[in-house]
Amino acid sequence: MNKNLFNQSVLVGFCLSSIFLTSCTDDDSGGNTLEPKGAYEKGVLIVNEGNFQKGNGAICFFDKQNKTVVENVFLTENNRPLGDVVQSATIHNDRAYVVVNNSNKIEIADANTFKSLGVINNLQMPRYLVVANNKGYLTEWVSYSSKGRVSIIDLTTNAVTKSLEVGKLPEKLLVLNNKVYVTNSGDNTLSVINSTSDAIETTLPVGDSPNSLTVDAANKLWILCSGQKNYNSDYSIDENTSTPGSLVRINPSTQAIEATLTFTSKSLSPDDLVINGSKNKLYYRYNGKVFQQDIAAATLTTTAFLNRNFYGIDVDPSDNLIYGADAGTFTANGKVVRFNPSGSAVDSFTVSILPSEFIFK
């Protein structure tokens, strides 16, 4: 999901060595102090969707050092809920941009205190946000049947300045080399936006229903595709007309597809592609399990890394612990289970309803 910390080792050394100093601050040039920015400055934010039309979506905060959880930090700090279906969150310049899908808005809060800083309203089925050149790029489905769009937001004024039509049901997106790559999950394409001109440079064909993407250590782009699923009258999947999922690698310098690794099943859909801190191991959900894929492998792994059915996964880049979001009954509070890089469970903790995504601060 964009969390940079300043190195203040010189300042800390000065403060510790001075016997006259009663408080440690920067000089008069206006730099940051060593005082904490807020209760939620360092830790993990967990996105909890909540139930559709119930307005109980939430952001939870996990303190990794003390292993404590604060549930629903936005409600705690502002005395009002986030809204209906919290889809995703992005941190930029100490601001949290929380996309609330069915409420058609983005809630903006201080990322360290979670005090409200504003709202962007009148969106149309918003999904995910990334930031480039101090502009937000937001995917919006608009409708289930028509093409979606990417709306460009001036993060100084919080105003939508431009909207670009992309493919159907645009989902996750990523910034790489001054370009914004958008997965069009209702099609089989990737839209590429130039973040300087804010124009669509090209549309790349990939596998059917791309849903997530990441960048590896070699600066290659990986896209996970669910495959097209068609149904018979009894709601079973029509194997004759459906297509399998795929994992696609693209060279962003040439925009050429370098590899396509195809799944065997036409009825199962891989989802939720993420990568570890070293950027050499891919992880995704498939067939009710979590799989780990080496970026150098020429074929898809057939052995599950975790035999757990999670609603969402991610990897903390600082220690490579794997976080699994367990939705449980989908109506009560869920939980998060953490695993070490070898796949052994470390611990677990309770969060809110339908945990789905993680932001590591």
Results as ranks from 00 to 15, higher is better:
S195Q: 03
N194A: 13
T196F: 15
N178S: 15
L247R: 01
T264E: 15
D187S: 07
I250N: 04
L268M: 14
N211G: 13
T189C: 10
S236I: 14
V248P: 00
V248Q: 02
V192S: 04
T241R: 02
S191F: 03
Y231E: 03
P252T: 10
N194L: 11
I250G: 00
I237D: 02
K168Y: 08
G167L: 05
N178A: 13
T243F: 09
Y181R: 02
D216H: 10
L261G: 05
L190E: 07
W222Y: 12
D234M: 09
V248I: 12
Q255N: 13
V166F: 02
D238V: 12
L261H: 07
T189H: 03
L261N: 05
G245K: 03
F263H: 04
I237W: 06
D271R: 05
S267C: 08
T183P: 02
A256D: 10
N188G: 08
N232P: 00
W222D: 04
N240T: 10
N178C: 12
L173V: 03
S233F: 12
N178W: 03
L204K: 00
L174H: 01
I237K: 04
V274C: 10
T243C: 08
N230M: 11
S197E: 03
P252W: 06
V248A: 09
V192Q: 02
G227N: 06
S269C: 12
S265E: 13
K179R: 14
D234C: 07
N232W: 11
L221T: 04
P252Q: 02
S195W: 03
V248T: 05
T196R: 12
N211E: 14
V215C: 01
F263C: 12
L169F: 11
T264A: 13
T254I: 10
E239S: 15
S246A: 12
N194M: 09
D271G: 03
D208S: 10
L204I: 15
G186R: 09
S269V: 11
E165A: 12
T196N: 15
S195E: 01
V180F: 08
I200Q: 08
V274P: 00
N240L: 15
P270L: 11
S195D: 01
E201K: 04
S246T: 06
T203D: 04
S197T: 15
T202Q: 09
A217G: 08
T243I: 10
E171A: 13
V175C: 07
L173P: 00
S265V: 09
N211C: 11
L221M: 15
N211S: 14
P244Q: 01
N177Y: 05
I250C: 02
S236R: 06
L174F: 11
E201W: 06
G186Q: 08
E258M: 13
K229M: 10
C225R: 08
W222C: 08
T262K: 13
Q228H: 07
T202R: 07
S253L: 15
T214W: 05
S191P: 06
V215P: 01
Q255A: 11
I257F: 00
